[in-house]
Amino acid sequence: MTTPISYYLILSGIVFLTGIVGVLIRRNIIAILLSVELMLNATNINFVAFSDYFRDLGGQVFVFFALTVAAAEVAVGLAIIIALHRSRSTINIEEFNLLKW
């Protein structure tokens, strides 16, 4: 008796939606980056669930690459946050309107 694949899809959909809501409603840049991590994890759950379903290791290898990209994204994102905090002394997203039209 195995868990049906649709349960995993619903789970990862809920986690992904939580991430989207977090990106849209939080004002702290660090919380926004944490929400991006939530979205990446939701896709990872999908990849591994389908890898188990189709008995194909390609999904797990792609989770590996997603992890690499997540690590790179976190390093660059946190460096940008530190640079922003140094120039503006805040990490509230509403204080940054340089690229706003």
Partner: peptide, 10 residues
């Protein structure tokens, strides 16, 4: 647990 903690993150 995953859903509860991810909602807590936000």
């Amino acid at each position: 647990m995953i859903i509860a903690t991810s909602i807590l993150v936000v």
